[in-house]
């Protein structure tokens, strides 16, 4: 049996790495990869809790959360494609028309 705290610690670290990728990278695709990374870290945590609590709800939750992650990528890439094709924007520094 693995020590419980180590798994929780691992997934929180993975989550924070995902958030760090999201914040530090400038291109849209890398930002999406960071967001996906943190979502999968949470999935790991959910599966672990499901095993500890002897309750299947957590594992079912993971299936739904994977679906949601897929939709996130689809919408995120769609808007990135629109921004590139129509307005020639690739990086997030160029998005500064709305401010104030």
């Amino acid at each position: 049996m693995i020590c419980g705290y180590s798994v929780i610690f691992l997934s929180i670290v993975l989550f924070l790495i995902g958030i760090a990728i999201f914040i530090s990278k400038k291109t849209f695709i890398m930002m999406l990869i960071g967001a996906e990374f943190s979502l999968n870290a949470i999935n790991l945590l959910l599966v672990f809790f499901s095993k500890v609590k002897n309750n299947l709800d957590g594992q079912i939750f993971v299936i739904f959360s994977l679906t949601v992650a897929a939709i996130e990528v689809a919408t995120g890439i769609a808007i990135a494609v629109i921004l590139y094709r129509k307005h020639k924007i690739q990086k997030r520094e160029d998005l500064k028309e709305l401010k104030g």
Partner: peptide, 16 residues
């Protein structure tokens, strides 16, 4: 498009 981008990318992080 810019508004939608900002909404999606902040929304993804908040939902995670």
């Amino acid at each position: 498009s810019e508004a939608s981008f900002k909404y999606i990318y902040t929304g993804i992080i908040s939902s995670s």
